[in-house]
């Protein structure tokens, strides 16, 4: 299946990834190749086969809803690109 340049741009926007103009053709070609590979799955009839989301279909283990972690906000924010007063800073989103 051939992926067009404008589809690459649309997917890249969904994924919030900047792709340079001169790289788009290469991604279109690579994605087309990967989708060709993936489409081999069409050979097999999977009608009625239950999708397998987990290696042995186990249910997620649950735990009591208790506080188990201490507040380490300062530690976690120590590596953030920009913080102030315990908040993560980003460019203004509301004028």
């Amino acid at each position: 299946m051939a992926i067009e340049a404008k589809e690459v741009e649309a997917i890249a926007h969904l994924a919030r990834i900047q792709v340079e103009d001169d790289a788009i053709a290469g991604y279109a070609r690579d994605l087309s190749g990967i989708l060709d590979l993936v489409e081999q799955m069409g050979q097999v009839d999977t009608e009625g086969v239950e999708p397998m989301a987990h290696p042995w279909d186990a249910a997620q283990r649950l735990r009591p809803d208790e506080v188990t972690e201490p507040n380490r906000r300062d530690d976690y924010q120590a590596g953030a690109p920009e913080v102030a007063s315990g908040l993560y800073l980003v460019p203004r989103v509301v004028e």
């Binding site: 994924a15 919030r16 990834i17 900047q18 792709v19 991604y27 994605l31 989708l35 980003v90």
Partner: peptide, 27 residues
């Protein structure tokens, strides 16, 4: 802008194969 921050941080911070797989997965 926030969108510019997301897109360029990811575009510059991630390599080709990782971007390729994210794009395939997103698709």
């Amino acid at each position: 802008s926030i969108e510019d921050l997301y897109k360029r941080s990811r575009g510059e911070g991630l390599g080709d194969e990782v971007k390729r797989r994210i794009l395939v997965g997103t698709y």
